[in-house]
Design a binder for these strands. Structure first.
Lengths: 194, 194, 194, 194
DNA sequence: TATGAATGAGTATTCATTCAT
DNA sequence: AATGAATGAATACTCATTCAT
């Protein structure tokens, strides 16, 4: 909806507290009171912003992973491509928002941890396990590897949607991604002797 | 100072806007008005929180790096140990805070980008270059590698100081670090044929 | 408007600083926040109080003077009647207010000096010049005469709207006016030998 | 005392409410807390400012009037000279202050009305009565004449100590006084036929 | 369904006053 | 006597929320 999109942009840019519903309404091209026809209150709108947008994206990734049959290395690249997309879209504002407001919305933090982070980690662990199973990767403990896999791109995402907007320092996240995949594949390559 | 410490804890937990100066005063064990004897206003206090604490920590890292003479691999571990320390201390709240408030305090974001991020990246690039020079690492472009190096630990830090506080999901960041260093050293190992 | 009238009464009685906007709202029969729908802040309301009310009154005097054709003595009485009216109405609170707050609102003082005092003096000087021209008054320098003409009634006005409200001493300003006009007309009468 | 003088200047310039005791202390060259060694609180200081300074001045006028033996016209000039002095000194700030703060300090207003205004009027009425008795003035009711006598100079005084400080419009109060005395003496001159 | 004028609870900030030194 | 750091009551102003239209 118009309102949710406007709210996402403003919440992500200014934070929950500093965003006035009047500005959201203005950005959505409606009047202040109209918001209350669709959302009970500001918190309700905030929850909708976080909940509505991310899960479909996650489902799309899961589906794409599911049908993949080629080398795990390509699967990894496919996964990362989704990250890159999110970095470059408004959707990237959501993780930034959740990080920022976790203290004030613990149940949002929990929801995000359970529905997004846990599911995301499960996807990655499945990919890693697949690679190990197929002998493409050397044996590694998937749980410990996950943050190593997503950390760099998550940082790019948070940078892009917060500090990076106000600094001259810029990262070429596609180049960083190439470097990371290079390191990963070498780092995960099966031991010569194994 | 008492006040700055209390403010850091509350700003990091709740964000700038949602933190009442009365609560800061209460946490610092003083009266509301006393804050104004030391800081012109809430914004001034916020700036002090971000500026005063981080630069000394960075200087300490720089100094430690400077005097190191052993293998670059140890240098990398030394650097990461500082990260781990920050993850585990209150200081870790500052990056979270800056990410959260970048939109409302662009000049803080800029300051952080220039004084913390840029300097931090310079340190890392120097370490990487040293490793390449000494033949310990294969030739890589340091700038593209930096986010790969710090991303995972930064994510651990942000997690610890935001979502992680409200979720059952926990990361063993020391274990993750071991895994990352393992991947890195394999991924950066000189080509056998070189 | 309701708000401006309530504000005038309270500002004049208590001064700018000692008047709470909550009291203004209460006196106007509205809520505190409503004031901010019409005025940007307290100072803005103060300026409106001073600016909106006085100029129309002055314009009315100017118009009345303009159309007068009879003896200058009657013109003088007409002018003074307007003063008496102001003494007896809420409008008299404005000069008192401006005198009181000149130090804190220099631009209000300037506005009042330029738009009210200067214009008022011009009116009076025109009346005096007319009287001299028509041979009804002996030649006098109008500029030096103005304060002599308005001083007594201004004092009555300030008294009425400040000290007089809290003292048993009362002035019959209409009687004082008669005395003053008597003195003036004798004092301005053409020299017998001229 | 140093403190009272500093307080008079500031109270007169800014009003009671807008004057900070810290500024008074600063202007008096002492520390904030020291004021409380001499005055119970801010109101007490305000009362002292109004009470201490004016009565001696009034007594001096009364004494000067008492010993005068010449023509009443000179007595009038003598009286007016005291007014001029007050216009030109810091003391002139007191009437302005009392007019401004009458609403918030009714008992100060009463004190001023009873001790200053009433006594001042008595002096003037005595002078007028003397003039009438000695056949220098035509018979007039003194009470009604008083505001006519003091009004112009009081206005000059209030102007000088409030609006006039912030406006380019200036009055030559000595010239105005000459004009007024001229008008008064002509206006009070005994009827030719009497 | 949509509006926007009105509300009033909530917070940053000021400054008279205190009191240990 | 003199200080000035600390206090906390008091007030301007904001903005989520309501509701008559």
């Amino acid at each position: 909806m118009e309102i949710v999109a406007a709210a996402l942009a403003l919440f992500a840019a200014r934070g929950y507290g500093a965003t006035k519903l009047e500005d959201v309404a203005c950005a959505a091209g409606i009047a202040k009171g109209t918001i209350y026809l669709y959302f009970a209150n500001k918190e309700d709108l905030f929850r909708a912003v976080v909940r509505q947008e991310l899960l479909p994206a996650l489902a799309r990734i899961e589906a794409a992973i599911e049908v993949h049959t080629g080398p795990t290395q390509d699967l990894l690249r496919l996964l990362m491509a989704h990250f890159v997309q999110m970095i470059e879209s408004e959707l990237g504002g959501i993780p930034k928002l959740v990080v920022s407001e976790a203290g004030n919305f613990p149940e949002i933090a929990q929801f995000y941890a359970d529905e997004v982070v846990a599911r995301g980690m499960a996807i990655i662990e499945r990919i890693v396990a697949r690679g190990v199973d197929r002998g493409e990767f050397r044996p590694v403990e998937a749980a410990r590897l996950t943050p190593v896999l997503v950390g760099p791109m998550l940082c790019m995402l948070l940078w892009r949607h917060s500090i990076g907007r106000h600094s001259a320092i810029g990262f070429d996240h596609r180049a960083v991604l190439e470097t990371q995949i290079d390191i990963l594949l070498r780092g995960l390559a099966p031991e010569p002797g194994a």
